[in-house]
């Protein structure tokens, strides 16, 4: 009796584990979600924006002198300009097209490119990580 139990456990697990090897479709592609230069720049942009927001908040809290605030604000804005320039230099439509040509997920799909979470169509930000879509 116990051997039957073992055999059932092995067979059920075996089917469960090995079935994907013989499946017809791949619902994902390895490497598709790898960090690209665009992802890195967008991340930097999001972090820079957050830094700028915090800077303004801390200035209003009296945590920063006028001089410090102006210097840091300029620094954040300069960095934002460099990031935007970097994004413009990348051929974004081409990247999007290349990604879209692959099977599975693409930036146009309902997956966040940063964290991969499901996002409703038309949303401007990912509900999971806050990244602009």
């Amino acid at each position: 009796m116990i051997w039957l139990l073992y055999a059932a456990l092995v067979m059920i697990s075996g089917y469960f584990v090995l079935a994907p090897l013989f499946g017809k479709t791949n619902n994902f592609d390895l490497g598709l979600c790898a960090e690209t230069e665009l992802d890195r720049l967008l991340d930097r942009k999001a972090v820079n924006n957050k830094g700028l927001n915090d800077l303004e908040f801390e200035y209003k809290m009296g945590r920063l002198s006028d001089l410090d605030f102006k210097q840091l604000e300029t620094s954040y804005k300069n960095e934002a300009a460099i990031i935007l320039q970097g994004i413009e230099q990348l051929d974004v439509p081409k990247i999007e097209k290349e990604k879209g040509n692959k099977k599975g997920l693409s930036r146009a799909s309902t997956k966040c490119p940063a964290c991969g979470a499901e996002t409703a169509p038309g949303k401007k930000f990912c509900a999971d990580c806050g990244r602009r879509l």
């Binding site: 584990v17 994907p20 994902f28 592609d29 390895l30 490497g31």
Partner: peptide, 27 residues
């Protein structure tokens, strides 16, 4: 192997094996 050969099916099978291992330790 799945990662080195870029074979999503093998990776998927590995993931299922991890689920099955969790099931067996639970049992």
């Amino acid at each position: 192997i799945g990662a080195s050969q870029r074979q999503p099916r093998i990776v998927k099978s590995a993931e299922k094996a991890a689920f099955a291992a969790a099931g067996c330790t639970t049992l």
